[in-house]
Design a protein around this nucleic acid. Structure first.
Lengths: 272, 272
DNA sequence: CGTAGATTTGACGATGGTCAAAAGCTGTGG
DNA sequence: CCACAGCTTTTGACCATCGTCAAATCTACG
């Protein structure tokens, strides 16, 4: 599939914004026309990758970051015992491993989950953009920090949420992130996830994931089948999972939404 | 309190390297003499905070970051059901919430676990350093990215490691981080952690944490008591936990100390 | 068709949670 | 110096969640 939203007249607009990566960055920081065209030029080398391919291996020092234009991918780590742990999902618009441009080392592997269309973003180009386009650099950093916020939320989920609520929470998060780049609106949007993948995400066994999905299905909260999950009533699932999207910082492109905070009040004393 | 810590002739040496934050940054990227003195000046307002105080509350927009000079603190999030999840430990040299200088919103709360000595680092100062001291800015970003690597490792641990190995892994990580700032070498260094704190870190109940600690103690892997854990033989514990410190990127200065001239120009664009 | 991966199912056991209470330390006020 | 309050650790009994093992279906795809 391609991601052209308005198929009618929107050719110019399409060329400007059809790239979900650019849409995502534009939603995180203000980008002007020159920023957008600089990005378009930097992202010129597009390629197709089939499902189940590793894009990056932990420990490598790649020389380009990748941007997912279409399809799903994940960041993962392997544990000595042979298990796998998925530490992030990458949906259209997400980038992998901007980190390595600073750390000189990939701290996780990246693999495609579905056939993907990806663009390479050489670190050299990132440096140039950094030097000439502060808006872009700022947007990239915001993206990395939001990734960290997502990671924290997963840690909370895996540690302190019940299995059903945790799985529901992950599904809600993915839908919210997809909507943020213009996908996943339809009530029957199919998340292309398998049960083993969810298991490695939630830190559960795939048998237990099956049981959880069966329960959610029985309650009408989701529909699922071979390699897909869909959500008939997002609000209801979000309510069940107590999902609050604020950690995704999707609230438009407002650079400055902050309700100005006061000086640190060292009298907090919150426990529990 | 005030900024003059080292009063007399130990002033130079004291001010150069006694600050664990500066030591930590210097271990992550090359800092020259001017960088160090710029940092010293930025970190002048030091204060003492007792244990169990909140420094930052989730959702706030503070106007300064904090640096832990002495003591232990943690980042945590609360879940709707009343549980708490600790998502990071802050040891001397660590900073809190540089994130918020970009995101305009604290994505987690921060609380002290022991009495702490902290320095404030106003976002305004960060902006100035960013504009004039690329080495510092680069070191700050490396620190944030290493935080993310730690978060990933915790996610792996909580999801795919057995309780005993996970707890051992957390202990090993803390010791490694302490050694990196010149603490925790002695075999009887006491980590000031309570069982409920470890429980909220590992996603376990405190009763089960007790059982795990009792087992580790029985095997001579740790010693523990009221508010402390110590490790008689670090190598042995690391072997048990299959701990590999490479994700902490402690290996001296960065492997690729990017010549100052060709650094991505990270000038400006912090906040606003 | 046949193979490989996904899902489904059931039986059984292990890990870890909950509840409740006792026992130790530490700091505080009388 | 003692009593007391509050936290932390310790302990045991019991139970729920979740993992493991094994096998049967089902679907896509060559």
């Amino acid at each position: 599939m391609d991601c052209s939203i308005g198929t009618h007249e929107a050719r110019v607009r399409n060329r400007q914004m059809s790239n979900p990566f650019i849409r995502k960055l534009a939603s995180r920081a203000h980008l002007d026309v020159d920023d957008v065209s600089a990005l378009r030029q930097a992202l010129c080398s597009v390629s197709q990758v089939e499902a189940g391919q590793d894009l990056i291996l932990e420990g490598e020092c790649p020389d380009a970051a990748y941007v997912i234009l279409d399809g799903f991918a994940c960041r993962y780590k392997l544990v000595p015992d042979g298990g796998r742990s998925i530490v992030a999902y990458l949906v259209p618009g997400d980038g992998c491993d901007l980190h390595a441009s600073i750390l000189n080392r990939a701290i996780h592997s990246v693999a495609t989950l579905t056939p993907c269309s990806i663009a390479a973003l050489p670190y050299q180009k990132i440096k140039e953009l950094a030097a000439t386009r502060p808006n872009i650099y700022r947007a990239l950093w915001r993206s990395i920090l939001v990734d960290e916020a997502v990671l924290q939320e997963w840690l909370v989920g895996i540690g302190r949420r019940s299995a059903d609520k945790q799985v529901a929470h992950i599904i809600c998060e993915l839908l919210a992130r997809l909507r943020a780049v213009g996908l996943g609106f339809e009530p029957n949007y199919h998340l292309p996830l398998t049960q083993p993948e969810l298991a490695d995400t939630a830190g559960l066994s795939n048998v237990h994931i099956y049981r959880v999905l069966a329960d959610l299905r029985k309650d009408g909260l989701i529909e699922s089948g071979r390699r897909y999950i869909s959500v008939p009533d997002v609000k209801r699932l979000e309510n069940f999972a107590r999902f609050d999207a604020s950690y995704l910082l999707l609230s438009g492109s407002d650079e400055n939404p902050a309700p100005v905070g006061k000086l640190p009040d060292m009298t907090g004393q919150v426990r529990r």
